[in-house]
């Protein structure tokens, strides 16, 4: 297994957010973490990369327990994280954004250069010197994914990559994610948009009120409209 999470509990101050969350991702798999707003998707991701200080549980990445490591160390091991709402560095140019994400090449993992990212997202190649703040939402989403790829990750957590984007751009995003998959990356996306998740995912988990409620293939989810309606209510 690429990533195994088990017994994950997280708190914000007095509030208990995640309850014994567990899931796994195999090498080269695209897994969707589905759930409503506030269900705990973002917190799950933030907990995995160590951005939530109060958390317990086991997080094994490539067989090693990373749950006690600081954020930067987890990321340097090849676990990339793309946050919700993008968070590009608005003052920095596209190229400089990539410089921040740059990490040494890692054996056995696709190595990314700015040029290769421009191939994946041709729009970005046309605006290398443009500050991140002067880009559209879709371009920023491409930039934030490209920036994480510069760290040569073997697994990427993508937090709601479709949020706030035009449906048209979301379709492009789906293509890019499938390309990343072909490069051998494991990918976890969190989504509310079931339509989008269906386009790209192999398996899905459903999280609701901080607990895992469902696990199965996309076909199984399709065959279970009750579950879908109960937890996603599209």
């Amino acid at each position: 297994m690429k990533l195994e999470v088990s017994g994950l509990n997280s708190h914000y101050g007095p509030a208990h957010i995640l309850f014994d969350v567990g899931f796994e991702v195999g090498a080269g798999e695209v897994v969707a973490l589905l759930g409503r707003n506030g269900a705990g998707k973002s917190t799950t991701f933030r907990s995995i990369v160590g951005l939530v200080s109060q958390r317990t549980g086991q997080i094994r990445f490539e067989g090693e327990d990373v749950s006690r490591l600081p954020t930067y160390d987890i990321v340097r091991r090849g676990l990339g994280y793309v946050p919700e709402d993008r968070r590009v560095f608005t003052e920095l140019t596209v190229e400089e954004n990539f410089v921040v994400g740059r990490q040494p090449a890692r054996p056995g993992v696709a190595t990314w250069t700015p040029e290769r990212i421009y191939e994946l997202f041709p729009n970005l190649g046309e605006m290398r010197k443009r500050p991140g703040g002067q880009m559209s939402g879709g371009e920023q989403q491409m930039l934030t994914i490209g920036r994480t790829l510069m760290g040569n990750p073997s697994l990427v957590l993508l937090d709601e990559p479709s949020e706030g984007l035009a449906p048209k751009i979301v379709e492009q995003m789906a293509d890019a994610i499938l390309t990343m998959k072909r490069e051998g990356l494991s990918i976890v996306i969190s989504e509310q948009n079931l339509h989008f998740a269906k386009l790209i995912s192999d398996r899905a988990y459903i999280i609701e009120k901080g607990r895992m409620r469902f696990s199965g293939t996309m076909a199984e989810l399709e065959a279970n409209p009750e579950i879908r309606d109960a937890y996603l209510a599209v």
């Binding site: 930067y72 968070r87 608005t90």
Partner: peptide, 12 residues
């Protein structure tokens, strides 16, 4: 601009 994001890109 964004301290946490820098850490999330592998910077100490």
């Amino acid at each position: 601009q964004d301290r946490d994001m820098v850490a999330a890109l592998g910077v100490n």
